[in-house]
């Protein structure tokens, strides 16, 4: 048996083993289970339908002005990491999986991965991506990882590979990836995060998959695209890099959800200040009066997904608040 065949066999065996552990949760919603896991481990969690991610692979992003293009930003590293393996890897996975979630934390942290402020690009953070399978049968994607290495983590073999980091830095980002059970493809830029994600997704505890206890979950999870951030204010290395600059302490969470087909989106702010006397100063250049009370401590604004510079600028500032700020 050649080394190549050995590697495929090992990976297949491991995938099989992990699937045994999670087989008892086949009746739960895999997307909810993935979101639930990410919310426990990360500060920001974003969700997008996989077909949406692959629908904006235009050649002229520089010149085309479209707010919707901003929505790909949280998944940029995921796309870049997979494209490094081959030009068709991302599109193939997008076809085979129904949705992709990303959890992000430690924005601009000292040990954060991705780019730092020494170059242009996305602010660095620790990220874990989970692609959720459409039909519960893991596809054979081994051939896409022929350029990757195999590394043993917790006694299991996973794919690893590195890509050059972002602009202006000689560092590289190392990715860890594996198919998990019958539902997931997990990829992370941090080994402990990867291990933890795999462990939780293969956990036998029911609590993980039962529900998501994030306020507003029932509303925003009905959309094909959403981001939620539960602001953490401890251990912040840089307020600006973390998207916290000028954010009042009463703001506890921020949610963005979009109906891409209708070119409509919403931002929802939750504040500990339930007096509703002061509109949170949330998005630079955004007319605060557009935020309307939605309940105690809840403000919401509708943002059209326009094809105008002002629209894309607004979303640029919105995504900054989720920890996806960019140095330009």
């Amino acid at each position: 048996m050649t080394n190549r065949r050995k590697k495929i066999a090992v990976v297949a065996l491991i995938a099989f083993c992990w699937s045994i552990h999670v087989s008892g949760y086949a009746q739960t919603n895999p997307e909810t289970r993935a979101a639930s896991m990410l919310f426990t481990q990360f500060e920001t969690v974003a969700y997008a339908r996989a077909d949406f991610l692959s629908s904006f692979d235009t050649d002229d992003k520089e010149k085309n002005v479209d707010s919707i293009a901003n929505l790909r930003l949280p998944f940029g590293e995921f796309v870049a990491g997979l494209k490094a393996l081959g030009p068709n890897v991302e599109s193939d996975l997008d076809m085979r999986y129904s949705a992709v979630l990303v959890g992000a934390k430690d924005f601009g942290g000292e040990d954060g991965l991705g780019m730092g402020m020494d170059g242009l690009g996305l602010i660095n953070s620790r990220k874990c991506y989970i692609a959720v399978l459409k039909d519960g049968v893991q596809p054979d994607i081994d051939h896409h990882f022929s350029k990757s290495s195999s590394e043993s983590i917790a006694g299991k073999s996973v794919w690893t590979w590195s890509v050059p980091q972002f602009e202006g830095t000689p560092k590289s980002t190392k990715f860890y990836a594996a198919q998990i059970g019958s539902s997931y493809f997990v990829m992370a830029n941090d080994r402990p995060d990867f291990e933890k994600a795999v462990k939780l997704l293969t956990s036998t505890e029911d609590s993980l998959a039962a529900s998501v206890s994030i306020p507003g979950w029932e509303t925003f999870s009905a959309y094909k695209y959403w981001i939620n951030r539960q602001f953490r204010r401890s251990g912040v290395y840089s307020l600006d890099a973390a998207g916290l600059a000028d954010l009042t302490p009463d703001v506890s969470s921020l949610t963005f959800f979009a109906n891409v087909d209708k070119r409509e989106s919403y931002i929802q702010v939750r504040s500990s200040d339930t007096s509703m006397k002061k509109i949170p100063n949330l998005v630079r250049g955004f007319d605060q009066n557009r935020l309307q009370p939605q309940g105690e401590g809840i403000w919401q604004a509708k943002i059209p997904l326009s094809k105008e510079e002002t629209g894309t600028d607004t979303l640029f500032h919105v995504f900054y608040r989720f920890g996806f700020g960019m140095a330009l």
Partner: peptide
């Protein structure tokens, strides 16, 4: 002049 800012090989859609 302007050019795209990349995230690894991913065109961010934002320009410098």
């Amino acid at each position: 002049k302007y050019r795209a800012v990349y995230i690894s090989g991913f065109n961010s859609g934002k320009n410098h």
